[in-house]
């Protein structure tokens, strides 16, 4: 085993825009042009670099488009089943607590098929970092209704728009987690539209785990031009407009006292 406390720092090499944690052999990545996943993952890679924890990370990804990140990084990764990334990472973390466990998933995985795992890991205070990309629909399967689909939004299974009376209102995930997680939890909602802010949230979420304080959860408002059937301009407008209006960006739970040396 490598020294668990080691800090991995390497000099930036050829592409200064590419995080060291990014695996260049698997780039260009497999996401559609304009997909928010790539932005969120880039931010995550940079944060792992900045924290120097490359050798301690176990990265788990879900089914759905997030699975395309299975070989995205230079850290050890495991692709699991739909909704089951949290329990895999929880199992690893419990068995070897020095592991930095990152569970990456979409809104279907976290809020629908795997909602019980998110709820229970949060309420147990499992010391992992869950990152959930919210793009308001099931992307990989062709754009169906998700718990996060906005009222009136058209998807493959709500062709006339989501009717709140029939299928409910969009789930507010971070609000749910913030309400049930015990002390020590870090909960935030960021957006790929505010890159530096998102990075800050991800860093705090990982620090929270490194310091052994509790569960950390970051929802990332993300984009899916393919299933939204939007051009670049409309994609951005939907993210920064309708989505941001419904899903409030910001920190919902910050453990007190704040960890020393936290920027932002």
């Amino acid at each position: 085993m490598a020294d668990e406390k080691s800090t991995v720092v390497r000099e930036p090499t050829k592409n200064p825009n590419m995080p060291l944690s990014w695996r260049k052999e698997t780039k260009p990545h497999r996401f559609c042009p304009g997909c928010g996943h790539a932005m969120a993952l880039k931010a995550l890679g940079e944060v792992v670099d900045e924290l120097g924890i490359l050798d301690r990370v176990l990265y788990g990804c879900d089914i759905g488009c997030s699975l395309l990140s299975w070989d995205f990084f230079n850290f050890d990764s495991v692709q699991t089943h739909h909704g089951r990334t949290i329990p895999v990472v929880v199992g690893a973390k419990r068995a070897r607590p020095e592991t930095i466990g990152i569970a990456y998933m979409g809104d279907g995985g976290g809020y629908a098929i795997g909602a019980q795992h998110l709820v229970n890991a949060a309420q147990r205070g499992d010391q992992i970092t869950a990152i959930l990309a919210n793009n308001t629909l099931y992307a990989m399967t062709g754009g169906q209704l998700a718990p996060t689909t906005l009222p009136g939004q058209k998807t493959g299974t709500t062709p006339y728009g989501r009717e709140v009376r029939k299928t409910g209102s969009p789930l507010q995930g971070p609000e749910l987690v913030a309400a049930i997680a015990p002390a020590g939890a870090y909960v935030a909602r960021g957006t790929v539209g505010e890159y530096q802010q998102l990075k800050g949230y991800l860093k705090k979420a990982l620090r929270n785990q490194m310091e052994g304080r509790g569960f950390s959860f970051v929802e990332v408002l993300s984009t899916c031009p393919t299933n939204w059937r939007t051009n670049a301009k409309d994609t951005w407008a939907f993210l920064q407009g309708e989505m941001a209006r419904y899903f409030k960006v910001g920190e919902l739970r910050v453990p007190e006292p704040a960890a020393p040396g936290e920027e932002e």
Binding site: L58, G60, V78, T80, H81, R84, P87, V88, V89, V90, G91, A92, K93, R94, A95, R96, T99
Partner: peptide, 10 residues
């Protein structure tokens, strides 16, 4: 799935 996580890390 947690079993698998534990087994993965040895």
């Amino acid at each position: 799935f947690a079993m698998l996580g534990g087994a993965l890390v040895g």
